Amino acid sequence: MSQPLAPLSAPEVPLPTRCTSYPPPFDRLVAGRYKRKLGDHFSLKNFGVNLTTLEPGAVSALAHHHTLQDEFIYVLEGHPTLILGGQEHRLEPGDCCGFPAGRGIAAQLVNHSEHPASFLEIGDRTAGDEAVYPHDDLKAIQSSDGGWRFTHKDGRPY
């Protein structure tokens, strides 16, 4: 059995070398998003936790919803805008929102402010999940190892 990792300040968790797993041309749409994968750092297997920072003008992800995985966000700093089912909600520190799987309601965070915004993202890692992107020709399928495979909506690979 391996030794547990010692606690550390969340901003000390290194940023990944790749900022997104989205294929081109979607990868450039999340420029200005910095995601520290806290759950991965501590080898969590059942759920993920990310400390995400959005620079002014940046988006958290393409608008999407999950078929099997629940997601939850908690705003730490700044004033991101949650776009949820086409409605906009300006958030502030302490605000939170949950996104139950299977409801078909797309969500994304956008930083319309002039200052960085940061929040925690928490989600489970249910195998076989699919992320649906209603506004883009993109579909994501989670493999058994936790990675994502991206295809066009008709199934053709990117």
Rank of each mutant, 00 (worst) to 15 (best):
P100K: 05
N111S: 13
E121G: 10
V132N: 01
A107V: 08
Q108T: 15
A101E: 01
P134G: 00
G123H: 14
S113G: 14
P100W: 02
D124E: 09
I105W: 02
D136G: 06
V110I: 14
R103C: 13
H115P: 11
E114I: 14
G102E: 01
G102K: 05
N111T: 01
F119H: 09
H112I: 09
D95Y: 05
L109C: 03
A127W: 10
L109P: 02
S118Y: 04
E121F: 04
D129V: 06
A127L: 13
R103M: 14
A107H: 15
V110C: 07
F99M: 05
C96W: 09
A101D: 00
A106L: 13
A127D: 11
H112T: 12
G104S: 10
G98T: 10
A107F: 13
P134L: 00
D136Q: 09
G123E: 08
A131M: 11
P134S: 06
S118K: 10
V132T: 01
V132C: 01
Y133L: 00
R103A: 12
C97I: 14
V132S: 00
H115G: 11
E121A: 12
R103I: 15
C97G: 07
S113P: 11
G94I: 04
F99V: 09
I105P: 05
G128C: 07
L109Q: 07
D136W: 02
V132D: 00
G104Y: 03
G123V: 03
E121I: 10
D136F: 10
R103E: 13
G128T: 04
S118N: 03
L120C: 10
H135M: 12
I105Q: 04
S118R: 12
C97S: 12
H115F: 15
H115S: 15
F99I: 04
G98K: 06
A131R: 02
